[in-house]
């Protein structure tokens, strides 16, 4: 105990502590995905004949391409609705006192933690033939026969938008909280109106939050298969249900694997586009 020990960094921990989780992920996350990729590159169910048959099948089949297209479109529509509705919530949050702020956060947070099946069930009650919307419109004499709201694109988009709204709103609240309120005042005192200030100052500066929110919302909306299948019904098919049908009902694992890989790549492509935009916007916002 003579010499002082060599100065050691006591503020950080060794990477060894990450080893158990890294190993767990390697075995139960990375390996399964590689196995999925491996099987998707085979033309037969037994996995004996290599080939791109599954991908060719998907990419030349108008039905499959249609499912992919409508899934990507659905994600875009839900994200747009969430952004338009979520941004004003984040804006309002910055303008109220701390008590109301907590109330707003809890309202936004609750659906995130409530079971997705429960939230989707609520929309069945609201959109159904005897649901609130139809009952109200009928009692007001606006319509005679119930509107078809369930099993429509409109129904799926509105239900998904509600289900995913927290994922958009929380990053927006964070982003708006980081904007210096003086900028707002400065812009207004220099003669810019509120609308102009919003579109020229607040919106650009909140872009990192917008992009983070859009990424999360989009990824969640296109994979939310409970809401898609219950509100969309049998006629509307999106990628997750397509994957599930092929894997489970038809036991066509190689094709289901190819669908999964194509779906994974589509999600990754969208996420990386958003991430790139985010990096660019941070440079813009920081300037």
């Amino acid at each position: 105990m003579g010499a002082a020990p060599a100065p050691r960094d006591v503020t950080s921990y060794g990477m060894g502590l990450a080893a158990p989780l890294a190993l767990f992920f390697l075995v139960f996350f990375v390996a399964p995905l590689l196995q999925l990729l491996w099987l998707s590159l085979h033309n037969d169910t037994a996995g004996l004949h290599w080939g791109l048959g599954q991908y060719l099948h998907f990419l030349t089949d108008p039905f499959s391409l249609g499912v992919l297209g409508s899934t990507l479109l659905l994600g875009a529509e839900v994200t747009a609705v969430c952004l338009v509705l979520g941004f004003p919530i984040a804006w309002l949050y910055q303008r109220v006192g701390p008590k109301l702020q907590t109330v707003i956060i809890l309202i936004v947070l609750l659906p995130l933690l409530t079971s997705v099946v429960v939230r989707t069930f609520a929309w069945i009650v609201i959109l159904g033939r005897q649901g609130i919307i139809n009952a109200t419109l009928q009692s007001l004499g606006i319509i005679d026969t119930p509107l078809k709201l369930l099993y429509t694109q409109f129904g799926v988009v509105i239900a998904l938008a509600q289900v995913q709204m927290p994922l958009m709103t929380l990053p927006l609240i964070t982003a708006l909280g980081r904007i210096d309120p003086n900028l707002d005042d400065a812009s207004c005192s220099l003669g810019a109106g509120s609308w102009r200030t919003f579109f020229r100052i607040v919106l650009p500066l909140s872009l990192p939050g917008v992009i983070a929110g859009c990424t999360l919302t989009y990824a969640a909306a296109i994979t939310a298969f409970i809401t898609q299948s219950l509100i969309g019904g049998g006629q509307m098919l999106f990628m997750p249900m397509y994957l599930y049908q092929q894997a489970s009902t038809l036991q066509n694992w190689p094709f289901a694997a190819a669908i999964s890989i194509i779906f994974l790549l589509a999600v990754l492509a969208v996420v990386s586009v958003f991430t790139t935009l985010g990096r660019l916007s941070r440079g813009y916002g920081g300037a």
Partner: peptide, 24 residues
């Protein structure tokens, strides 16, 4: 890299992971 790896289940479709895990 590890951080990205540990976060990736949040954005990847869970259904695809479920199928992959079943296959393995």
């Amino acid at each position: 890299l590890l951080d990205s790896l540990f976060m990736s289940p949040l954005v990847l479709p869970a259904l695809a992971f479920g199928l992959a895990a079943l296959m393995l």
